[in-house]
C-alpha cells in the first residue's frame, strides 16, 4: 500500500471518528444536561419579588440538576437587557431569564425589543392577584367608589407603580370595562403609592394582593375588587371582576424563559425540573409566606406561551385606546 493510500485511509477513519464523536457530543449535551453551570438572569433589581423568586429557586434547582447556579440581576430598562441577553445567548438551556409580567407590558409599550418569538417560556410559577385598594375612610366598598367616579368624571385619582406596568394595564382594563373616567398617577416605588393611599391624597391604587396584606389586616387599607374568577379565601365579601361581569383576571405573573433557539427536549427537561420544584414543600412554604398562594401559579410551557400572546394583544389594544 502506498503512503498516499495509508494517509487517505487514516484520513477517512479520522473524519468518521470525528463525526461519531460530534454526534455523541450532541447526545451527551441532552443526557448530561446541564453539563456546566447555570445562570439566572433576573429581569429586576435585587431584593424585589422577582429576585426573591429566582433566589428561592436557585438552591432547589442546584440540588435537582446537581450543578451550580449563578444569579445576576439586570434591572436596567425594566429588565429588557436580561431578555435581550437570554434571547441572543447560547441555546444550551443554561441561561434562564426570570421575569414578571413587565416583560409583556413593556413589550406592548414598545420599550422591550425582545419579542415573544425570541424567547420560549419554560413555565409560569406565580400568578399574583390584582386588587383595587382604597382607604376605608374614603370609600366603604366598590359601589361607593364607582358612584363617586361616576358623579365626578376625571376627579378620581388612582395610583400604581411605573408607567408601563401590570398596575397600569389593570387600570386601563378596568376603565375600559366600566366606562368610568379616572386619572392614573404612576409612582416610582410601590411604597410611595401606598403612602399616598394611606394619607388619602389619592383615591385608590392597583396593586398585587401579595404585597398589601399588612395594610389590609390592620384595616388601614381595604381591597374593594379582585381581578379573579371567584372570591379569595378570607375575603369572601370582596367582589371579583368576573362576578361583576367583567372578563378581567390578569394580575402579575412570574415565570422562567429561555432563548427561542433552545431545543424542545431541553425546554421539557427544564419544565419538569421546575414543576418538581413547584410541587415541593420548600417552594410551597415560600409561596405561602409571601402570600402567593391565592391561586395556582403553575402553567406549563405551551399554555403559558399562548397566554402571553393573548396578553400582549390585549395590552396593545388597551394602550392604543387610551
Amino acid at each position: 500500500m502506498s503512503d498516499r493510500n495509508t494517509f487517505l485511509a487514516f484520513g477517512m477513519a479520522g473524519v468518521l471518528a470525528a463525526g461519531t464523536l460530534a454526534a455523541s457530543a450532541t447526545m451527551a449535551a441532552e443526557d448530561n444536561f446541564p453539563d456546566g453551570n447555570i445562570t439566572f438572569l433576573v429581569a429586576a433589581g435585587a431584593g424585589g419579588g422577582t429576585d426573591n423568586f429566582a433566589r428561592t429557586i436557585q438552591p432547589l434547582l442546584e440540588e435537582r440538576l446537581d450543578t451550580t447556579v449563578n444569579v445576576i440581576n439586570l434591572p436596567t430598562a425594566s429588565g429588557a437587557i436580561a431578555h435581550q441577553r437570554t434571547a441572543s445567548g447560547k441555546a444550551d438551556g443554561r441561561t434562564l431569564d426570570f421575569a414578571s409580567s413587565t416583560l409583556v407590558t413593556s413589550l406592548a409599550a414598545g420599550q422591550n425589543p425582545t419579542g415573544l418569538d425570541q424567547l420560549t417560556p419554560v413555565a409560569r410559577m406565580q400568578s399574583d392577584v390584582m386588587a383595587l385598594v382604597v382607604n376605608p375612610d374614603k370609600y366603604e366598598d366598590l359601589e361607593a367608589f364607582m358612584e363617586h367616579a361616576r358623579e365626578q368624571p376625571g376627579d378620581t385619582v388612582i395610583g400604581g407603580t411605573a408607567a408601563a406596568s401590570p398596575d397600569k394595564m389593570a387600570f386601563l382594563a378596568f376603565q375600559d370595562a366600566t366606562g368610568l373616567d379616572l386619572s392614573f398617577v404612576p409612582y416610582d416605588q410601590e411604597g410611595s403609592t401606598a403612602a399616598n393611599v394611606l394619607s388619602g391624597n389619592i383615591d385608590g391604587m392597583f396593586n398585587e394582593i401579595s404585597s398589601i396584606t399588612g395594610y389590609t389586616e390592620s384595616g388601614k387599607m381595604k381591597p374593594i375588587l379582585f381581578f379573579a374568577e371567584q372570591p379569595l379565601e378570607g375575603f369572601s365579601e370582596v367582589p371579583t371582576t368576573v362576578g361583576q361581569g367583567w372578563d378581567l383576571t390578569n394580575g402579575n405573573e412570574r415565570g422562567v424563559f429561555v432563548s427561542a433557539k433552545t431545543s424542545p427536549e431541553l425546554v421539557n427537561r427544564l419544565e419538569s425540573a421546575l414543576h418538581e420544584i413547584y410541587q415541593s414543600d420548600q417552594y410551597q412554604q415560600y409561596a405561602e409566606r409571601v402570600h402567593l398562594d391565592y391561586r395556582d401559579g403553575w402553567m406549563g410551557s405551551d399554555a403559558y406561551q399562548q397566554k402571553l400572546q393573548q396578553d400582549l394583544k390585549q395590552y396593545r389594544t388597551l394602550l392604543k385606546q387610551q
Binding site: 435585587a46 426573591n52 401606598a194 394611606l198 399588612g214 395594610y215 389586616e217 388601614k220 409566606r289
Partner: peptide, 25 residues
C-alpha cells in the same frame, strides 16, 4: 407603615417578607 424611605430600606423590607414577617401598620 411598611413603606421604605430609601433604596436600602426597600431591600430590608423585602428581607422582612422573606423572613415571614408582615410589614405594615
Amino acid at each position: 407603615l411598611g413603606i421604605p424611605g430609601s433604596g436600602t430600606t426597600a431591600i430590608i423590607l423585602g428581607a422582612f417578607v422573606m423572613h415571614g414577617l408582615q410589614p405594615g401598620p
